[in-house]
Amino acid sequence: MALIPIREALRAAMREEMQRDPSVFLMGEEVAQYDGAYKVSQGMLAEFGPDRIVDTPISECGFAGLGIGAAMVGMRPIIEFMTWNFSLVAYDQIVNSAAKIYQMSGGQYKVPIVFRGPNGAAENLASQHSTSVESLYAHFPGLKVVTYATAYDAKGLLKSAIRDDSPVCFLESEMTYGMKGEVPDEEYLIPIGKADIKAEGSDVTLVTWGKQVFTCQAAVETLKSQGVSAELLDLRTIRPLDREALFNSVAKTGRCVVVQEGYPFSGVGAEIVAQLQEHCFDLLDAPVLRITNRDVPQPYATNLEKLVMPSAERVVTAARRVLGLER
């Protein structure tokens, strides 16, 4: 067991997969000579050389499309977006090509590709650098959308994503690259599509993913001090959704709050609420609430930004409301 930052866990995942499979390569802006805009790929150019750790011009549409074409003929590209905000100029490539080629070719061409990079808000990056993209990609059948909170999950999930035969959007966070966690020395994989209970509880289920796991962990502690036992379910994969884990937890608690970054309208939380009312209506003791970003483009000013983001306080209040402890 080693205590390492998440960026090193991600790097270890890529290095191990590149060592075992010569068809894997990493391509993106500043991934090679600069060692990665967030140092995730530090040292990898020296280890693997410029044919496998590839700096690109600022051309997301161009290099995302290149990755897709290479994947179709048997390579396994990892395409890094410096942030997922920039993926939107490659949206057509990911949505209309990567997601659809396997189906529209009648299953002839697989697209084993990973698109990865930091997602969601960091701090004071303002409206164009703070978008959470999970709902934009999870909308489409053909794509998998994976994220993590801990170093352990980051490594195991990224290794699985690289080995997956379908395109995977892998969502990271600038805010947690330096956060340390225990990672085993021996190899391990975490299957895509499996949620994880980060804290067991019996009164209310908090459903979340990504760095909002930490917001919810703080809320769990506060609730505990108030005599409320909250279960924290970390989805880890947005699509395919682990409905079994979700429904089992809600069956146990009868109450649920979904905590997400990104906007409420057509957000992933809306999908989870819909699934719960369709499949768990009789098990619910209260309406499901959502805590999301406020429905405005991200403001720059610190006080306004804090107001926009989910917070432990907002999560605690929502949990108390579904428990009938507050109105």
């Binding site: 549409c61 161009g62 290099f63 995302a64 499309g65 290149l66 990755g67 897709i68 074409g69 290479a70 994947a71 179709m72 003929v73 048997g74 390579m75 590209p77 057509d92 490539q93 209309n96 090509s97």
Partner: peptide, 12 residues
Amino acid sequence: GHVPLANGVGWA
């Protein structure tokens, strides 16, 4: 939209 894909084939 498909033009960038050709580069990936070329890359491989």
